[in-house]
Nucleic acid binder design. Structure first.
Lengths: 343, 343
DNA sequence: CTGATTTCTGGGAGCGCTCCCAGAATGGAA
DNA sequence: TTCCATTCTGGGAGCGCTCCCAGAAATCAG
């Protein structure tokens, strides 16, 4: 770094104190509005700070307070997923809003692969942040396990794949979402309701599948042979639906565990000459704000509220940081169904 | 914060030095691999650091180096846009990858409205970061102007609405993109080529419109009455296309300045009983990785590479941080056309 | 007016690190 | 051997802040 010229030298607390005619201690107290500062001194200090354009040196402050004022948001998921899925965009934005509302800076971290784990751990353990919000939807992800060894307050988004107990988490009711979708289709008179699942090593995908099965069995229907694995991509939705159609020619509905797969399902159905929803109804999951209403026909989809999830995660993390003894457990948030034309 | 128990006290450099049997200075040199450290001492220090699980206190370090090792990525755009647009998701992810590859932490900031500007400025001016990558696509956005007053290295993504000169920026060739789309349509025999524009206070949208007009005029066609304003949303694409259709019944192609608007255009066309691309061809802009291939029919769209943009922005910022005297100007990146079935 | 409280202030120490500088060890060259 | 350059090391200072503590000033009870 080139040496700073005198003019771009930042004013320090000492400068502010001198300008205000008080001591460094008093200036500090005034700026952090501690008790025991006369209103006269406080006003003088605040004016001085404004006049000089003072802003405190965060490094110096956190060196002594042992607080960074920053929280990490960790997204542990292969790049492709994060890019395509607006759920994560919403998460990032909501997290930023919630955190900065409480005066905390957000530090975003992506963990694409196992190789990123050590670097991430090192960073989180390095005292750069006061806590972390972690999204690691993959079962077998080594990150949550590694994090348990750290002495760092952490709240998970979604059910962490491993070591569910003794962990703070806020999840959606994926199982109820699956049930909701199927019951809606049943109510509309559908009887041969297939499903395209997500990757089943995601607890969320597994739960959606379970919900689908629950609802079918509750209605006295046999789920056998009506489920086909996908991997959350459009291509897999297409392929899986084609397979389903070949096996079950009288299929009259498809529940896809993501909107992207629902788009693929629609393509396969059209390719097979089926009308939507005339011949086959389609229901997705996520209620992707751009994709679901834009589809042809607009997609009926299970809606979840990532904002609320983040809000609860932040609230809980803040309690932990405040030193409250919060019982570690998983909060389950409800989901709803956004009904459109596809089914 | 609850008082730290002795066992979770982090080892300091002093501890490492003592354990390794050298001085604090030597330990510091070894860890920062400075010159003039014997390989014996270096090995001892590195072993000690590993044994003790040492990681340096970032606050203490940046207090003296006056470097934070962090860079802010600022997205100044209304929330809705950021949420729907995977361009920003890509930007965030690519920025993270590029920055962490150079050992820099990314700090993400969103500026939703004018109210967020002072807070953002204060933060950036507060010495929390060494530099910033700023996306402020809106003309009249107060942020870029405010940033000019800060002594902080900044590189813009996209043409900053105001004060283009003397600023570091990496932009796409939006005008060429518009031309590319129209020339493709002309080559396919289309002659009545309308356009749905983005918000024209985005320089990018204005440039796309100009490119469209260029290509028509080059072909000896009159653009008059063939342009209709939109605002990047699907609804506006629908409405604008309907208006276009009413005015120009023999319309045979639509160039939409975004993929979302192209989706709206398709809906309007279908609503008017036009076949795509039989009666009317549709070309979008962005090549939205989830939306464009998922549409029915798959959308031909102008493709841009946000990764490359970020890469160049980071490279330039790093040069600035290294103290190189880089001439402030705007790099223009080329765009291509992803041809699919819609036109 | 005195003495005990309460409110307010300034100086000192120290957070963990890097950097400067003086001096010790080492290695050739004369 | 002696001398000088080179390589290596440790101690001290100080980054800008908060917090502790002693003491000054103001307030109040008797």
């Amino acid at each position: 770094m080139p040496p700073r010229s005198p003019q771009d030298e930042r004013p320090t607390l000492e400068d502010v104190a001198a300008y205000a005619g008080v001591s460094r201690s008093t200036a500090s107290r005034a700026l952090n509005d501690d008790a025991y500062v006369s209103s006269r001194s406080r006003a003088k200090v605040l004016d001085a700070a404004r006049d000089l354009g003072y802003s405190p040196n965060q490094a110096a402050r956190s060196l002594v307070t042992r607080r960074t004022g920053a929280v990490a948001v960790v997204l542990s998921e292969p790049e492709s997923k994060v890019l395509d899925d607006p759920y994560f965009a919403t998460v990032m934005h909501a997290a930023y809003r919630e955190l900065s509302a409480t005066g905390v800076q957000m530090l975003l971290m992506f963990v694409d692969s196992r190789e990123d784990v050590p670097r991430t751990i090192r960073f989180l353990d390095g005292g750069h942040v006061d806590g972390a919000l972690v999204f690691a939807p993959h079962r077998g992800d080594p990150l949550p396990t590694a994090l348990r060894l750290l002495r760092l307050p952490i709240v998970f988004g979604g059910r962490p794949g491993t070591g569910r107990r003794g962990v703070h988490a806020v999840d959606f009711d994926n199982r109820a979402g699956g049930r909701l979708a199927v019951r809606h289709l049943l109510a509309a008179g559908r009887r041969r309701i297939g499903t395209v699942t997500g990757m089943l090593d995601h607890p969320a995908a597994a739960d959606r599948l379970t919900g689908w099965r629950d609802a079918l069995e509750d209605a006295g229907l046999d789920p056998d042979g009506l489920s086909e694995p996908g991997d959350f991509t459009m291509a897999s939705g297409d392929r899986a639906t084609a397979a389903l159609l070949a096996r079950v020619p009288d299929l009259d509905a498809v529940f896809a565990a993501s909107d992207m797969m629902a788009a693929g399902a629609m393509r396969a159905l059209r390719g097979a000459g089926r009308a939507i929803p005339g011949d086959v109804a389609v229901v997705g999951f996520d209620d992707h704000p751009a994709l679901a209403p834009a589809m042809n026909p607009p997609l009926t989809s299970v809606h979840q509220d990532p904002r609320e999830q983040i809000r609860q995660m932040v609230t809980r993390l803040m309690s932990l940081l405040a030193g409250d003894s919060v019982h570690p457990d998983t909060t389950i948030l409800p989901v709803t169904l956004a009904v459109r034309d596809s089914g």
